[in-house]
């Protein structure tokens, strides 16, 4: 950008008619620009692009972290399909994500809508909802073990008060994932805050127009609120799904890693990244772990693309003709 041109300087078109002085400026600009973004470029090459290539190469070897690595062709990838733990952990992860993502989005939206019209008190409640987010996931995993304990835990105690007999959340294979999903709802605060910001951004005149037209509450939500925040919903859907597919800490804390985890661990909590972590750093099957990582990448990519395609029908962008 130049200091000489005034009116046209913000136009794209002006760049197509470069003057002499202008192009000199622009070359300096380019150098400066690359100077500013150089940290990211270096980081991208060293910590992302390089490792991606390395990971891809490793996935065709039997590297164990110490000795020499030997090429094993597609053996790691073939093994993915024979290893029962892969199918098990992938299934666990998908079930967890399918339960967690919609539920957490619904709860977050409900809380955000509750927060929307309460005036000054909103800040206080926001803080409370955010506290669990600031709590280390390890502590959340510990609380899961304590509160969801089937015999003596608080959750079943409360269920007992209303005459329900709660399941063995932490030991019964059928109930471990639902228990972890419920636990994860505790940390829904960050999504609540994102939704709250989106809801506050919905233009008030749209509600007024809806009211003038005699539209009821539900229809006003469906036809005004929902389209207006659909972009945000889409964003959190993608982000929460990707995060859920990589869930690790709570499950690992509660069920893995202790000295006698072999007997104690429950494979209903064997999530994909937990298994990958074990393969990479406990058994140092780094080649196989790399193949596992690429399979997860593929799964994430496919699910994201499907979500994007399906969401396209529901996401509304102002000025977008669709």
């Amino acid at each position: 950008m130049t200091i000489t041109a005034t009116g046209a300087k913000r136009r794209v078109r002006s760049a197509q008619h470069p003057e002499r002085g202008r192009s000199r400026w622009r070359r300096r600009d380019t150098w400066a620009a690359y100077g500013f973004i150089s940290p990211w470029i270096i980081g991208f090459l060293v910590f992302t692009a390089g490792p991606m290539i390395a990971s891809f190469v490793l996935s065709f070897t039997n590297y164990d972290g110490i000795g020499a690595s030997h090429s094993v062709g597609f053996a790691n990838y073939r093994h993915l399909f024979q290893d029962p733990a892969v199918a098990k952990s992938l299934m666990n992860t998908l079930i967890f994500a399918v339960m967690r993502v919609p539920l957490s989005m619904a709860v977050a939206l409900l809380l955000a809508m509750l927060l929307l019209r309460v005036g000054r008190a909103s800040g206080f409640f926001r803080t409370i909802f955010y506290l669990p987010v600031m709590t280390p996931s390890v502590a959340v995993g510990i609380l899961f073990l304590l509160l969801f304990n089937g015999n003596v835990g608080l959750i079943n105690h409360v269920l007992g008060l209303v005459g329900l007999h709660g399941p063995a959340w932490t030991t019964d294979s059928a109930w471990i994932k639902p228990g972890l999903v419920l636990t994860s709802l505790w940390s829904v605060g960050s999504t609540v805050i994102i939704y709250l910001a989106a809801l506050k951004n919905v233009p008030k005149d749209l509600y007024e127009a809806a009211e003038l037209d005699g539209v009821g509450r539900w229809n006003s939500f469906r036809h005004v609120t929902f389209p207006q925040i659909s972009g945000t919903l889409f964003f959190t859907l993608i982000v929460n799904t990707i995060a859920s597919l990589q869930t690790f800490t709570e499950a690992y804390t509660a069920f893995f890693g202790s000295s006698n985890s072999q007997t104690y661990s429950n494979d209903a909590a064997l999530f994909y990244v937990v298994y990958l972590f074990q393969q990479a750093f406990q058994y140092t099957h780094m080649g196989y772990a790399s193949a596992l990582a690429w399979l997860l990448f593929l799964v994430v990519l496919v699910i994201t693309v499907i979500q994007a395609k399906v969401s396209k029908r529901f996401v509304y962008y102002e000025g977008d003709e669709r």
Binding site: W40, G50, S55, A280, A293, L296, V300
Partner: peptide, 28 residues
């Protein structure tokens, strides 16, 4: 602030890395 050759491609790469599961680069 700047407009420079390759900017849009590089910024698309920035966005792209947000979707990359961290486990892909964990071992290397």
């Amino acid at each position: 602030y700047f407009r420079f050759p390759g900017r849009n491609v590089l910024f698309a790469l920035v966005i792209g890395t947000m979707m990359l599961p961290s486990v892909v680069t964990m071992v290397p």
